[in-house]
Design a protein around this nucleic acid. Sequence first.
DNA 1: CTTAATTTGGACAAAAGAGTCTGAAATCTG
DNA 2: CAGATTTCAGACTCTTTTGTCCAAATTAAG
Lengths: 162, 162
Amino acid sequence: MLSKSCIYGIQATIYVAANASQEFVPISQIASELKISFHFLTKVLQQLTQEGLMNSYRGPKGGVALAKPSTEITLYDLIGAIDGTSIFTECMLGLPGCGIAEPCPAHEHWTKIRNELTVIARRLTLDTMAKKAGELNVRLTDEFRYAQKLFPSIKPVNGAQA
Amino acid sequence: MLSKSCIYGIQATIYVAANASQEFVPISQIASELKISFHFLTKVLQQLTQEGLMNSYRGPKGGVALAKPSTEITLYDLIGAIDGTSIFTECMLGLPGCGIAEPCPAHEHWTKIRNELTVIARRLTLDTMAKKAGELNVRLTDEFRYAQKLFPSIKPVNGAQA
DNA sequence: CTTAATTTGGACAAAAGAGTCTGAAATCTG
DNA sequence: CAGATTTCAGACTCTTTTGTCCAAATTAAG
Ligand code: FES
Ligand code: FES
């Protein structure tokens, strides 16, 4: 569904939103905590910066920060900035100009799903996701649980690693 | 969302389902009518054959045919056979083992969408889509309209080409 | 002013997806 | 049997995505 770039972008922005204490968060910190390739993540976040969703600052004490309050950035914005909005508008069969005038055989059903996805993505804010990420057992990546970072004594529910 | 292979497979099977008159439909016929690369489509349909959704027959008068009645093949079957069922089960962020035990911050909302997608894909049969494909102005590919093939005098609603 | 930390911007490599081609095997027709 | 038609199987190329790396520009701190 989503590209790797997009997934990394979402995870990173949630991480930044949850670190409201830091003014600018260095990309190296995000990358090492979330176990994402630093150089690759750098490109993704540069794109979010160019799209106006983040601010960046160079030099010591530099890093990236949200350009707007986390309540005003939605999942739709993030996906749109990285993968583009075609998911929310395109034909399931990839035909150009999806519409009732020239529908494909799945149009009626696909648009229903697509519209619900759009509504949910527009409603779901970074703030909501960051709060959720702070709950117990919620994970941002396969490795990273925010609750575990705050309270290292907490063990995950299915204790794979000791 | 869907790979090109999957889209071609869906278009081709709808085409075959709509051609109920022919016993076996040659892949070359499907490819030329739907303007899909013959060799590429061949591979896709081979996969559907191996998955048990289609039968094939070599030699003159050969081709491919549905292995089951078109009322018993669903969009879910087609997608599952080509792209796999991960769309219907995987985490939006690609995390392994999507579940309420270790959710990601979007789990709750994504599973809602995903479940509706699954229900619709399981309900939508080839028969339904083939019937829809026969309606006026419904297109199977950018180029191919079934109604136009049956009644060449009919012009598309937004007459791009003369 | 010098050094270290950081983003920026691009080049480059590896992997996966999409598409092309060729030859072999099966099957019908005459 | 001979020849034509068709699927089957695999090698190969091209493009996009993913990932790695390095040098230049910016800024804070001593
Ligand atoms: S035309 Fe295919 S989904 Fe609208
Ligand atoms: S864990 Fe991410 S959608 Fe379920």
